[in-house]
């Protein structure tokens, strides 16, 4: 069975107040994550939590701050918080930021999308759905 972060009590837990924002962001980065099962979401959040737990506290604070700032930016720009934005608008908003002239902003978006992708594309069912079939058996497993 794939190791996942929810197996590790040492993982970093996202504050409840940010969970809706995190889900909205995850759905923009990986559309399938939007309607994923509670079990899949728990794995995704657990992987993120474990990845963040392994990094310096300063970086964890920066990630949480970035999520809050994105939520507020959406409110200022569109009059709605991030979770309330339509999927297309959320995507346009984040794509715009990913091309921002300021490196720090681009890095922030890149970092968040990479974390979400780590939580999603390392899930065994997701890899199966994609048709990824590598195993130790190699050629023997295909013949």
């Amino acid at each position: 069975m794939e190791t996942n972060a929810s197996d590790h009590p040492g993982g970093f837990a996202f504050p409840d107040s940010l969970r809706a924002c995190l889900k909205a962001l995850a759905g923009a980065f990986v559309p399938e994550a939007e309607g994923c099962s509670p079990a899949q979401w728990a794995v995704l959040e657990g992987v993120l939590g474990q990845a963040l737990a392994a990094r310096p506290a300063r970086l964890r604070r920066q990630v949480l701050l970035l999520i809050r700032v994105l939520d507020l930016l959406a409110l200022v720009r569109y009059g709605r918080r991030l979770p309330a934005l339509a999927a297309e608008r959320r995507l346009v908003f984040l794509e715009g930021l990913s091309r921002a002239p300021v490196l720090l902003v681009r890095r922030g978006i890149w970092g968040l999308r990479t974390l979400v992708m780590m939580g999603w594309y390392t899930q065994p069912e997701v890899r199966e759905t994609m048709g990824y079939r590598a195993t130790a058996a190699g050629w023997e497993g295909r013949r």
Partner: peptide, 11 residues
């Protein structure tokens, strides 16, 4: 899969 996803530009 994850390494590939990470290395593609965008989302």
């Amino acid at each position: 899969p994850f390494t590939t996803a990470k290395n593609l530009t965008g989302f």
